[in-house]
């Protein structure tokens, strides 16, 4: 089954983070991605740029980011393969984001294979 991991964190913290810390976290993500690949659980994954550069579109108009939904913003995603929700939760817990933000796990609705 496919699962989407949505990575939420405090993106403003990134703006003021020391470079050494940034590269540590970057390295952790590289390693995590590699672990997913080696376990043949990886479909895709990317970080997102700051939500201030995001837009929200409705028929009634377009809203500029950042979006005032709270301190934590969507900052990245992974699409993974897991046998069941338990396994997906295990992968989510290993995601570096789970240590400083949170990871939302959403089963992907499989329409017509």
């Amino acid at each position: 089954m496919k699962y989407l991991l949505l990575l939420y964190d405090n993106e403003d913290a990134w703006d003021v983070m020391e470079d050494s810390k940034k590269s540590e976290i970057f390295g952790a993500y590289m390693a995590y991605t590699e672990a997913l690949r080696k376990a043949e659980a990886y479909y895709a994954g990317d970080p997102l740029v700051h939500s201030r550069d995001g837009k929200r579109v409705r028929v009634s108009g377009v809203q500029d980011g950042p979006f005032a939904d709270g301190k934590e913003q969507l900052g990245g995603y992974y699409m993974i393969e897991a046998d069941d929700l338990d396994e997906a939760l295990d992968w989510a817990a290993r995601c570096p984001c789970a240590s400083y933000g949170y990871v939302e796990v959403r089963p992907v609705w499989n329409i017509g294979g």
């Binding site: 390295g27 952790a28 390693a31 995590y32 991605t33 590699e34 672990a35 997913l36 290993r94 240590s99």
Partner: peptide
Amino acid sequence: AYDRAIGLTEDMPTRRFLIEKK
């Protein structure tokens, strides 16, 4: 091998320890 270990670690202190070793 360090990368594999780091990628499978759930907690920050252990992850950091391994990153430093690497």
